[in-house]
Design a protein around this nucleic acid. Structure first.
Lengths: 369, 369
DNA sequence: TTGTATGCGTTATCAT
DNA sequence: ATGATAACGCATACAA
């Protein structure tokens, strides 16, 4: 039974209204700190009556547990680090990443977690930040978005026994969520071929990324499936930037027998490609069909509106986070690879207005090489 | 002098390579925990020799201090919370905010701080999260971006004695960084008038935001300065969304004597406005000059390229963060209001190709209303 | 069901 | 210049 102890002179100077500790609650309620702690964490073996009494005090004084202290004791911070490549100085403005970030953040907060953002800077690499975050900051898990095949820290994170998941990149044996860019790219070519194109060009992104590589592979497979041959002058190499798309397009479009369609490895390169065609007096989609990939916000505002292979980055972020939290809470198998479908969004730049119709009218006999 | 104590069986099971505590360092170096702590924090009154010896051990075993424990003891977390309005479910995709976020994040990390993001959700309001963050998470400071005049929590944050700064919003007596949208809007009107426009319309954003209000006021002032009268049919009311811009434009452009120019309260509304004009068969900029505001990335990709009143959100984010950190470290006066200039970016949608020329040819005698 | 004692890893206060 | 010890606020075996 609780002892009737007075609050005593427990108000420390400068302490604002709700600045209490678990000690205060124990004293005010007449129970021990442990009991209060158990109540706080919803332990079922506390008598309903005492639970009530303790909660009354907690709410009366507006007590809030201190996360730092809790984390220290529990050795869990309820914080997840999101590691993003330093594509530009302004990562948040990059639509591709910002979209997944939104999904991640929402899922995290919905589950009581917080996120901190870590860019892959030189300092990150040099100081071994990928492991320090676990030790120093006590982060519970890590989300690695859009890593490169050449990023060595990825292996170290997984092999260190910490829990992490790859967001839209893939490595054998590690948990990840990726979009099916192979199948998607294949379908882009298929779509183009079904519209009568026989000479279909390609501007690659970075093949050191899973996304870029899969799109490149899908492009080749698509060509093969349609009985089309791969022409070297029709493919250029970019790095996902608008400028690189522009340059690759100039090269491709200058070739002796230029393609009637070009599939760009992402939307920004597709835009660069369109700009280039425009300058060369080649109308899009009239004389050249262009298809991008990602479906960034810009795609529907650009003219001609970009036909693109949509990648659901928001959903991918959500899914990856769910996987991570699932692992942290014990549920969910491990490791697990989740692949989400891509979607061909047909707009103006490819010259076809309705994807469904085109797809339905098409039959297997497209392999007329 | 250090005692020669052996490492003893201090290796706990499951401890990875660098999983040591300050105790281990003390034992291994032969000094006390206090001394190690002092060395760690660069206290000058430790003998260079011992400092060396301790650092040797630290680096040899790869010791990393635990942030949680440190924060608990120091009562400082080195974490700043960024509070953003829930304009959409996907805050990061909103260019306006993402840009400032980049500035904030960079400045924060450059100074050893981390950021956590807090959206203003119903839960945020209901649970008094704005104050809980200080207590529970022990955050050191708060950055409030784009708050509404109706947001009551703002006052509470500042009055609670915690340190915070407003990012692109203003309240009397509180520290903030704002863009000079009043002067900027004034100049937009001035520019339009100097091009011969006498009937200049306006689509307002939310006047409950500092940004929106200042632009509205600047618009009126600009009209007055140019000796132009404000015509009611020429102004519409939007909420910063493309859709609202579209609708306001339809109303304005349907009026008996429609304006020859429209200044929209932000770029998205300007885009909506252009789309509407297009549908109504009004060419831009031929029959209607349109000017937006913010200079979001889309502005230069949209056709016609948007003339816009640029607001340096990245810089604003940096500045606000510097102010906050300055206050936290004792330097920097308080409170302080910083206003940064806006810039008129002249592109296609206003029908003027060169701002400088126009500006130079213009003299004071524009007040011929 | 509840209380006691101890630990979490660090900093800070006071000695020496 | 360095060391012993008490916070910091909470969680958790273990005891009762």
């Amino acid at each position: 039974m609780p002892k009737l102890s007075r609050p005593a002179g427990s108000t420390r100077s400068g302490a604002s209204a709700g600045d209490h500790t678990i000690r205060d609650i124990a004293r005010l309620s007449g129970f021990s700190r442990s009991t209060v702690s158990l109540v706080l964490n919803g332990d079922p073996r506390i008598a309903p009556s005492t639970r009530r009494r303790i909660w009354d005090v907690i709410e009366r004084v507006g007590y809030q547990p201190n996360c730092m202290a809790r984390s220290l004791a529990r050795k869990r911070s309820m914080i997840v680090a999101v590691v993003v490549p330093r594509v530009s100085a302004r990562i948040f403005s990059d639509y591709y990443f910002s979209e997944s970030m939104s999904g991640i953040n929402e899922t995290l907060t919905a589950n009581g977690y917080r996120m901190i953002i870590q860019m892959v800077t030189e300092n990150f690499l040099k100081t071994g930040m990928h492991l320090r975050l676990f030790r120093e900051r006590q982060i519970d898990g890590m989300l690695l978005v859009g890593t490169l095949d050449t990023d060595d820290y990825v292996e170290e994170v997984f092999e260190s026994g910490n829990t992490a998941v790859l967001v839209n990149s893939w490595r054998p044996g590690y948990s990840c969520v990726v979009a099916d860019n192979f199948e998607g790219a294949r379908r882009v070519v298929d779509h183009l071929a079904s519209m009568g194109h026989r000479r279909i060009g390609y501007i690659s992104g970075l093949d050191s990324t899973t996304v870029g590589l899969r799109r490149s592979e899908g492009y080749k497979q698509g060509l093969a499936d349609c009985g089309l041959e791969s022409v070297e002058e029709c493919v250029g190499y970019g790095d996902f930037s608008e400028q690189s798309g522009y340059e690759a397009a100039r090269q491709i479009l200058s070739s002796a027998e230029r393609p009637t369609a070009i599939f760009a490895g992402n939307d920004m390169m597709a835009i660069g490609c369109v700009e280039c065609a425009r300058e060369m007096g080649i109308s899009v989609p009239g004389q050249l069909a262009v298809v991008g990939a990602d479906d960034i916000a810009l795609s529907s505002y650009f003219r001609p509106k970009l036909t693109t292979l949509r990648q659901p980055m928001f959903d991918i972020g959500c899914l990856a986070t769910e996987l991570l939290l699932g692992k942290l809470s014990g549920t969910s198998e491990w490791p697990v690879e989740k692949v989400v479908p891509t979607e061909l969004i047909v707009r103006e730049s490819c010259g076809a207005e309705c994807a469904e119709r085109t797809a339905r009218n098409r039959t297997e006999d497209t392999t007329d090489g």
